[in-house]
């Protein structure tokens, strides 16, 4: 915990969990879309999110996040309008997700290119989030650290090629946490790598070039 966790964040009100954290959840979708504009989003809200989202502007905050705005962007207030202008169709469905954290959102999205995906996560207080699912795969990261998401084919040698690349060419980076999830053997798999440092953009470019790596993304720390 540092001084700016207590004096901060600078954010759009009214609630760090229901507004700022919600915006960050949407932001993960924006990252996953990776520059491809999201044209359709269905946002399932669970628990306290489902019951109080209107009064807290949770809906606008999630939309703003999907469109790439941050939790201190004044555009959050006008998110409905901006979404309409950008041709982003959205639907909010208040519906409890069993056993989920009280402030959970599951966002199903489609991009202009046709690419689609699902991000599920919870706003766990103070603007902090925990992402619990990506495209149906179980993950767990908070976004407190710089986090690499590497979507790849589940086949021998991929993890080694990723860590070797980091060891040989980005030796200043230290891995604080590593997790692998997959749907089935030999299918799609996802590496979640939390780093102590902010990696350079070139790392992402290099990772994407690796064999059997479908995509690589960086979710920056708060």
């Amino acid at each position: 915990m540092n001084i700016f966790d207590i004096i901060g964040p600078v954010m759009i009100g009214p609630s760090s969990s229901h507004t700022a954290g919600a915006c960050r959840l949407g932001g993960v979708v924006c990252k996953m879309a990776d520059g491809d504009p999201v044209v359709e989003a269905t946002i399932r809200l669970s628990g306290s999110f489902a019951r109080t989202y209107r009064g807290h502007g949770t809906d606008r905050a999630i939309l703003a996040g999907i469109m790439g705005y941050h939790s201190d962007s004044v555009e959050i207030r006008d998110a409905f309008h901006i979404a309409q202008e950008r041709g982003l169709r959205y639907l909010f469905v208040p519906e409890d997700i069993p056993d989920a954290h009280p402030n959970t959102a599951r966002i199903t999205y489609t991009c202009r290119s046709g690419k689609s995906g699902i991000v599920e996560g919870a706003s766990i207080g103070g603007g902090n989030i925990r992402i619990t699912g990506i495209d149906g795969m179980e993950v767990s990261f908070t976004g407190e650290n710089n986090t690499l998401l590497i979507l790849h084919r589940d086949t021998p040698g991929v993890i080694a090629s990723v860590t070797n690349l980091m060891y040989w060419h980005y030796s200043e980076l230290n891995i604080g946490n590593f997790r692998l999830s997959r749907k089935e053997r030999g299918g799609e798999a996802l590496m979640t790598i939390e780093l102590d440092e902010l990696p350079p953009e070139e790392l992402i470019t290099d990772l994407k070039k690796l064999e059997n790596v479908h995509n690589a993304l960086l979710i920056r720390a708060v």
Binding site: I6, I7, G8, P9, V10, M11, I12, G13, P14, S15, S16, T19, A20, G57, R60, D72, V74, I76, R77, G126, G127
Partner: peptide, 21 residues
């Protein structure tokens, strides 16, 4: 009031208590 109207504030330490500092 600014916080409740979705304005920009500093959470000190939280959004709910952002008016005191």
């Amino acid at each position: 009031n600014c916080n409740a109207a979705m304005g920009k504030i500093v959470a000190t330490p939280t959004a709910g208590s952002c008016g005191i500092l």
